[in-house]
Design a protein around this nucleic acid. Structure first.
Lengths: 362, 362
DNA sequence: TTGAAAGCGCTAACAT
DNA sequence: ATGTTAGCGCTTTCAA
């Protein structure tokens, strides 16, 4: 359907009829079977027919009806999803929900999703998951490569097996991956810095707080830290930045001690928590009646939302893990079904959430 | 596809095969014709069959194969889009681009989009556009009802003609519209207030600045203003708020004079511009070398983006007009094709844009 | 090397 | 009120 713009509100519709495989067959004087063989390069076609058909195809600007095509295609495609276990973690639970939805959505198209979960705090479990995933002989792999070295190793293996790979949430520098889907961690750190900087004019210190479970071996939290530092280098070089890493998988007592000694320092203006576990810090501060320190963290999970609404957390940066998950599956499926080559990097917007726009995100 | 969690990394896959209309017919002991009649609410089905079939549908969690559905449906559907002329305005150009994309996307499903443009500064052109739209005998209407009275009048006419209507960008209180798609203007005003408030600690005055072309007769800008006032009522009642309306469609000289006299007042801390024309104020301030006044406005249009990056505009609230447009068309199409009843109000997130996350939105 | 025909899941017209 | 059937555009099998 084309149109020519003549004047406001008046269009001429030039309805060039949609041509199909049948039309091509008629125009070329052959059967649709032969046309199909040409279209799919399946040989067993005389040179003469081949030439004629190709000419016609070109002339009528044939575009296959993808809807009809996917209706008929019966091939089963298996996708392996290698993602963090969602049981203890609301962030990954959100991802999991997106997987469940996608599973239903894509089943119709013959796409089958197989899940391989690993423990965020256990590198070995990641290796096990990747091994099992490969054993399943999937047609494509979608992975959250939390662990740097093991991640790269796995990607190499996929490359050897000619398996297409899509990453999400955590970036890894591997040239052969089909696509990375997620936020730009460095930029995200810069943004966090700006939000804190905006909230306080005074002199003092800022803290970057990592929870260690993901930190081990993981790049994207370090990228956030780099971005955070870079901001102050550029905008306010006098600000002191300190970094602490809190070890969560120890006893409660231990990390509380760490936090206590941190918060006792009097000149701290703000804290940037590099994961969705922001609420842990915020709850701790609330309990200790510390109100002056500004807090910026990540993601719209229940506890964070509550604390944000009550003004205990100043900003959240939403990474939109559901949409990342959904898009990762979508991207891989479209690649395998329709040979749609995706962008190498699909960066998600860094969504700033305050208590005055949080409702509009829920 | 269900699974039972046994232990980490081990799943039992219960591959409940995709059920189709044929399976439902078999399970309910009727023919596919009857099932189809139930699915599409076309009556002529006995109460008994109806109940049984509905039960089965629910039980097997039937999901229609949209591919097959759209392959078969040959009916042509005409949609009338009544939207502001995009020629003078980048905001509406973005909307227009979304229309062009949607046009291609939906053509396959037999949906034809007809455009009826009107001039933002000319109420009469709106009336003309609506008249022409109706003359086209569309199956559904998508409209941006900038002008309050004429808008309501038109909606009443649509109701009389039994035409389904979707609104976007501008809300209008009309009970019979299928859906409003856009931001919550009141909330948006509150957010703007918070962003300004955050940026300045001192005492002083804030200004709400409307450009008049859209203001005449239009509610959503007044809603923004209300939200803005409500914020300070709640959070910082001592702040003075003044409101000015700048008349843009007069000579340049005139509105510059208005701005000049406004900016001469010494105690102004920040300005909230209620439309995407934020750049006009910012450029003016830049030219007059005014750096201290904070500026919050709307939308990611080229000039705004540039000024935001250079720190001249402090925040933009993105209304995402492309996605609004896209979703409006999507909503109406799905309603007409598949009788999908949308939510009455689809509120878009209020996206906060600063110079540190703007890149992630482009 | 080619053509004819079945069928993907669904809709809608038609027959009963 | 219900069942049967043609056919949407394409792929694929099978027979010629």
């Amino acid at each position: 359907m084309n149109f020519t713009y003549l004047s406001i509100n008046i269009f001429i519709l030039i309805d060039n009829p949609v041509v199909g495989i049948k039309d091509i067959a008629r125009l070329a004087g052959v059967s649709i079977g032969t046309v199909d063989r040409v279209l799919h390069d399946r040989g067993r076609v005389s040179a003469k027919s081949l030439k004629k058909i190709q000419e016609v195809i070109k002339e009528v600007n044939y575009k296959p009806n993808l809807i009809a095509r996917s209706l008929v295609s019966k091939k089963k495609i298996k996708l392996a999803l290698i993602v963090p276990d969602f049981k203890q973690d609301e962030y990954w639970t959100q991802s999991q929900k997106a997987v469940e939805v996608a599973k239903d959505d894509w089943a119709v198209y013959g796409i089958q999703l197989d899940l391989f979960l690993f423990d965020l705090e256990d590198i070995a479990s990641f290796s096990r998951a990747t091994k099992k995933a490969l054993a399943f002989k999937p047609d494509g792999v979608i992975v959250v490569p939390i662990f740097y070295d093991k991640g790269l190793l796995f990607l190499k293996k996929c490359e050897q097996n000619n398996l297409p790979v899509v990453l999400f949430n955590t970036h890894l520098p591997a040239s052969k991956t089909l696509s990375y889907i997620g936020t730009d961690s460095f930029q995200s750190g810069m943004l966090a810095a700006e939000l804190l900087h905006l909230s306080v004019q005074e002199k003092g210190k800022f803290v970057v707080l990592h929870f260690d479970e993901e930190l081990t071996n993981s790049v994207h939290m370090l990228e956030k830290e780099k971005g955070f530092r870079a901001y102050f280098m550029k905008e306010d070089a006098n600000k002191m930045i300190s970094v602490i890493t809190v070890v969560l998988n120890n006893t409660k007592h231990e990390y509380q001690q760490q936090l206590t000694s941190l918060l006792n320092k009097k000149d701290i203006l703000g804290i940037f928590v590099s994961t969705s576990k922001t609420y842990i810090v915020s709850e701790f501060m609330e309990q200790k009646k510390i109100n002056t320190i500004k807090l910026v963290g990540y993601d719209l999970i229940t506890k964070n939302i509550d604390l944000l609404k009550r003004g205990k957390i100043n900003f959240l940066i939403n990474q939109n893990i559901e949409r990342q998950t959904e898009l990762a599956i979508h991207t891989m499926s479209n690649y395998l079904l329709y040979k749609q080559i995706p962008e190498k990097n699909i960066h998600f917007p860094l969504e700033i959430i305050t208590r005055y726009n949080v409702l509009s995100y829920l």
